[in-house]
Design a protein around this nucleic acid. Structure first.
Ligand SMILES: [Mn+2]
Ligand SMILES: [Mn+2]
Ligand SMILES: [Zn+2]
Ligand SMILES: [Zn+2]
Lengths: 144, 144
DNA sequence: CCTGTAATTGAAAATTAATTTCAAAATAAT
DNA sequence: ATTATTTTGAAATTAATTTTCAATTACAGG
């Protein structure tokens, strides 16, 4: 935990940026979120703890955290982006229920293998990938 | 071509909607687009042909065409959606260069197989999926 | 063919996620 | 401490998409 904070501080300094309490506070909060999050939910979590962080600062800090490799933008839903901590997490795909919005994660080694293969074929330098599968979840199917 | 138009007319009537020249014109134009398109480019194509179709009508017609299975929303870039005709096209993944915006398509039968497997496992009713791979394309790598 | 009603249209206004602006505050090097 | 530079919160702006609304059109029934 604290080692991650320190790692972030070093990253910030190496980039010639200033290490501010706001940036640290946002990272600490994100490390406590267990599932996917968007800007709004993160903002509300912080607000509940009487933090005075503005949404603008969240919007400004997320790209830094992505660049530092702490988080990734994983999918869009209802017109806005969702993120997740991808530090110690295997790449995975997302099943998204278009009826209730539920999102299930599935880790798949075959998929990683398949993507590596295409990376070589296409001579792209791979950064990240998203596999989103849209459907109707079991719960929503039986409601019908 | 004309059989697709007729298929659309039947779909529209079956849904209890009205079959308007605007809806038909939009479908005809989309069937002529060979690659990915967004609302703006479609609007400009129509405008160039002296069509009076409004953007509002395009925005209203695209979801109908998606429901009818003629097109799919395939990825977002620069904050807006791109679509493609998916009628006679095998499902495929997209390599997206985050530097120049270039998009390469790759058809992969293994991927379809892999997704079908998860569909069964998770008991989701599959509708569609997107695999987007973000990276730097060969051209952009050598410019560096 | 008319006629009535309900849907659709284009244009403009509204919405909303994300970005930018700006003056005040904070960081960090000297 | 002094100073140059960055960052902040709040408000304004941007831009894609959605909604509103009055006028037009589709089309079912007579
Ligand atoms: Mn996930
Ligand atoms: Mn494609
Ligand atoms: Zn569901
Ligand atoms: Zn490129």
């Amino acid at each position: 935990m604290e080692n991650l904070i320190e790692e972030f501080r070093i990253f910030i300094k190496k980039k010639g940026l200033k290490y501010t309490p706001e940036r640290e506070e946002i990272l600490r909060e994100i490390l406590e979120v267990e599932d996917h999050f968007d800007v709004e939910s993160l903002y509300l979590r912080l607000k509940n703890k009487n933090s005075k962080i503005s949404k603008a600062s969240i919007y400004r800090t997320l790209p830094i955290l992505i660049e530092a490799g702490f988080i990734q933008e994983v999918y869009k839903q209802g017109g806005h982006s969702f993120y997740e901590v991808t530090l110690n997490k295997a790449p995975h795909l997302h099943f998204i229920c278009i009826s209730c919005g539920r999102v299930d994660e599935v880790i798949d080694k075959e998929l990683n293998f398949l993507i590596k293969k295409h990376e070589k074929d296409k001579k792209y330098k791979l950064l990240t990938y998203h596999l989103e599968i849209f459907g109707i979840c079991p719960d929503c199917r039986e409601v019908k």
